[in-house]
Amino acid sequence: MTLDRRALLAGIGASVALPAAAAPPREGVAASSDGGAFALGAAGGVRRLALPDGLEWTVPDGTGRLAVFSGKAGGRLIGFDAGWRSRGAAATGGHEPVHLAIAPDRSVAAVADYSGGTVSVHRLRDGVPGAAQIVRHHGRGPNAARQAEPHPHWVGFGGGGRWLYAVDLGADAVFAHRIVGGRVVDTMVAWQAPPGSGPRHIAWHPDGRLAYLVSELDSRLTTLRIEADGRFTTIGAQPTLPAGREGYVGHVAVDAAGKRLYASNRGPNTIAVFALDDPLRPRLIEQAPCGGDWPRFFLLRPEAGEMLVANERSPAMAVLPLLRDGRLGAARAGPAVPKARFAAW
């Protein structure tokens, strides 16, 4: 397919509606690799939360939070009110949940279960998840150690909630599940990744026509156009790593203005910063030290002028100043969350 760059730029924002932003809670939360959950105060204080072990991911639902937990009996999706009191729970039907998303109208939640190759879809009623509809992925990649079976690693809603996208590291694919009435009614491969690349996470361009995908096993950033039928078309790809270095990309995010893209590099322990002056062609402008070891996740906090980095092999998180031009300043010690793997506000 021939891409008309001018037409694409002119049409950005026309086809895919992104989830409406929920009002963030005043108190942040972080998850540790030891399974613990920690509250993050606005002034920098940290306290351990009395939540079930195995917190993996959490998102605000407007009045409280949804959170997913990993345990010996499998994954659990729990709805909480603003005071972290449980409103109800449901099993995800899989193991090792690694990502959670909520539909734009907050009527449906989805969970990516890394082990077993499943995605669970839950209707929500007053923030309480219903029984899971389990959708099973199929496929494998050439990396026998990492891709012997499907491994969903990220989920997100597109097209105003009509599509549930699932990035599968094991199958080298992005699946698109069509949602009708809160249930998956059809599934297709929206994008087939290069063999062995191990796609991990996606970030949407705020104008809605582009997606930026990072692949863990080859540490590359791929720019994708979102087509009207829900499929993706490749525009270009480039490394996220410093020249001559090896590692594993972790997370990707785009700022609210669509001017800068950030990706974390585990191993080299940097945050790659890309300029999006031309959103079709991200331009690498900085490799900033992440302030710790193994940056699994980072959280942009423009209202505080900072990036919060969850360094999974460090005794505390790191804080990097967000400069006016979108670059990152020197890291300083952040919240004392050991082995942090995720944070949300």
Rank of each mutant, 00 (worst) to 15 (best):
G75L: 11
A237E: 12
H153M: 05
S86F: 06
A31N: 09
P315D: 00
A42Y: 01
R225I: 14
V252A: 09
R327W: 02
A176C: 04
H95P: 02
R106D: 03
S107V: 00
P60L: 11
A228H: 10
P239H: 01
R48Y: 00
D278R: 09
P338L: 02
E286W: 01
F175P: 00
G305R: 04
V167C: 09
L217M: 08
L169N: 06
D4V: 12
D277C: 08
P295G: 04
A272G: 08
G230H: 08
A42V: 04
G35R: 12
A50V: 10
T2H: 05
L323P: 10
A103Q: 00
P25R: 06
R125I: 11
G83T: 15
A22G: 05
R324G: 04
Y248C: 04
R266W: 11
R283K: 15
A275K: 11
A228P: 10
E286Y: 00
A7E: 13
A30M: 14
V180T: 00
A166P: 07
D218L: 06
H137I: 10
R65D: 15
L55K: 13
P282M: 08
N265W: 03
S264I: 02
A171P: 01
A272D: 07
L9G: 15
M188V: 15
D218G: 07
A103F: 00
A31R: 11
R48G: 06
A336Y: 00
